[in-house]
C-alpha cells in the first residue's frame, strides 16, 4: 500500500496554489461578490490555460487526461482560495461528461462556462455566468433565470426556465454527477476549512487582550485545535474516496458519502470556531472570514448534507 500523492500531483497543486495566491486573493473574491458577477473571468482563463478546467477530460478529447486522484488536491486548493463561480461543476462534471460532444472544445478552453442542475435541488448555482446547464439527462443552452438570493456571493442561486434541451448524460467515470460533486465539494470544503483555520490562527497570534495574544488563552487554543482535528480526519477519507472513484471500487458510493459527511461537519465546526475566535469583527461584512464561512454554509448542504451522506454510509455498513 502507498497512501500518498505523486510528486507531479503535488507540484500541480502547488502551481495552482501559486496562481490563486495572486489571482484569487480575498480582494478578488470580494469583488466578484460585490459586483454581483460571482465569477472572475481573468482567473477563469488562467484556469483553462493551466489545464485545471480540462483536468478530467481524456487527452484524446483535448484534455489533461487526469483522474479524480489527480483532481482532488486541486479541488482542495480551489476551496482554500474560495474561488467563486462554477469551477467545480465545470471541471468535475460538465467538461468530462460532455467531452464527446460539440461543446468539448469550448469547455476545455473555458470559452463556454457550464454549471449543473442536480435533481434534488430546485435551484441552480452559478446560472448567471453559465451558458451551458447540464442536468442528469440533458444540456440546456437556451434558458432564462431568476435570482433567489443565495447566501454565498460566490455561489449565487437561481431558478431556471429552460427554453429547449438536448439529450446528454452527466455521468462521469460511471458515477452520477451528484456523487462526483459530493466528492469535489468535500475536497473543496477541506480547503475552505484550512483557510479559515489559517486566518483565525494568524488573528489569534496578533490580537491582544489582557496584555497577551488571545491565542495564549486555553479556551482559544482548544477552539482552534478542535477545528483542526475535524479537518485533518476528514482528509484521508476524502482522498480515499477519490481513489475509490478512480479505480472503480465497489465501495465508491459509501466512500464518497463518508468524505462528504465528514468534510461538511468539519467545515461547519471550523466556521463556528474561527468566527468565535475573531470576536466582534468575525460578525462583520468587512472581515474576509465571511468569504469562506458562507461558502462552507452553502456547500455543507449542497450535493447532500451530512445527514444524507451518513445514511448512505449506514445503509452500506449496517445493512450491506
Amino acid at each position: 500500500m502507498k497512501f500518498s500523492f505523486t510528486q507531479d500531483q503535488r507540484l500541480f497543486a502547488e502551481g495552482l496554489r501559486d496562481l490563486l495566491s495572486k489571482q484569487c486573493t480575498p480582494t478578488h473574491v470580494r469583488e466578484a461578490w460585490e459586483n454581483q458577477a460571482g465569477h472572475l473571468p481573468d482567473l477563469w482563463s488562467r484556469l483553462a490555460e493551466m489545464g485545471v478546467l480540462s483536468m478530467l477530460v481524456p487527452e484524446s478529447q483535448g484534455g489533461m487526461g487526469g483522474t479524480l486522484i489527480d483532481a482532488v488536491l486541486l479541488f482542495q486548493e480551489l476551496g482554500r482560495a474560495a474561488v467563486p463561480g462554477p469551477v467545480l461543476e465545470h471541471m468535475a462534471v460538465a467538461a468530462p461528461a460532455l467531452a464527446h460532444t460539440q461543446w468539448a472544445h469550448a469547455l476545455n478552453d473555458g470559452t463556454a462556462i457550464a454549471t449543473l442542475w442536480v435533481d434534488a435541488n430546485p435551484y441552480v448555482a452559478h446560472a448567471q455566468v453559465a451558458n451551458i446547464i447540464l442536468t442528469h439527462d440533458s444540456v440546456i443552452t437556451d434558458f432564462s433565470i431568476d435570482d433567489v438570493h443565495g447566501i454565498d456571493g460566490g455561489r449565487q442561486l437561481f431558478t431556471v426556465h429552460a427554453q429547449s434541451t438536448t439529450k446528454a448524460s452527466s455521468e462521469v467515470f460511471g458515477l452520477p454527477a451528484s456523487d462526483v460533486m459530493a466528492l469535489a465539494s468535500a475536497a473543496y470544503l477541506i480547503g475552505v476549512s484550512e483557510a479559515m483555520i489559517e486566518v483565525a490562527a494568524e488573528y489569534a497570534r496578533q490580537r491582544e487582550q489582557f496584555g497577551k495574544p488571545i491565542g495564549s488563552f486555553q479556551a482559544v487554543k482548544h477552539l482552534m485545535s478542535d477545528a483542526l482535528l475535524k479537518v485533518e480526519f476528514a482528509k484521508a477519507p476524502t482522498y480515499r474516496a477519490a481513489w475509490s472513484a478512480s479505480t472503480g471500487s465497489s465501495t465508491v458510493l459509501r466512500d464518497i458519502s463518508m468524505a462528504k459527511a465528514l468534510a461538511s461537519e468539519a467545515a461547519y465546526r471550523a466556521s463556528r470556531s474561527t468566527m468565535q475566535v475573531h470576536g466582534g469583527i468575525g460578525y462583520t461584512w468587512e472581515a474576509d472570514l465571511q468569504l469562506w464561512m458562507k461558502k462552507s454554509w452553502a456547500l455543507m448542504r449542497a450535493y447532500g448534507d451530512a445527514t444524507y451522506h451518513r445514511r448512505r454510509v449506514g445503509a452500506s455498513v449496517l445493512h450491506g
Binding site: A120, P122, Y123, D152, R301, T307
Partner: peptide, 14 residues
C-alpha cells in the same frame, strides 16, 4: 431548522 430546510437554507429570502 436549517437542516430541515435543506436546499432552501442556502437562500437569504423566501
Amino acid at each position: 431548522a436549517l437542516q430541515i430546510l435543506g436546499p432552501e437554507a442556502e437562500r437569504m429570502e423566501g
